[in-house]
Design a protein around this nucleic acid. Sequence first.
DNA 1: TAATTGACGGGCA
DNA 2: GTGCCCGCCAATT
Length: 111
Amino acid sequence: MGRSLQSEFERKRVRIVRSIGAVPRGRVSSYGAIARAAGCPGAARQVVRVLQQVGGLPWHRIVGAGGAIKLPGENGAEQRFRLRMEGVTFRGARVDMARHEHKFRETRKTG
DNA sequence: TAATTGACGGGCA
DNA sequence: GTGCCCGCCAATT
């Protein structure tokens, strides 16, 4: 097969990028959930790296487990602002995950 | 080559 | 609810 030019890491990164991009407006997902959806369970830190490196992604829709905003300082404030602008509601300092967590669906046909 | 660093996650006191 | 520890992965130093 001809995809040998891409390393395993690069392919994982692509899947992570696509998973992040799949989170619709008004909904959120967590670092760990994105990693799992991309087929890389346990690679939450890798999701962070992608968010930092790749532009044009809905970075504000990615939060910590339980809906915690993990960005420090002004960046965290902007994330909350952007989420609110999309209609996302909070429960204290955290996103109301019960209402806004995005559910990824498997690539299974039998749905 | 080894140690350190991060927008992490989960278990436990 | 909070703080500490350990596991996790890759890039940097």
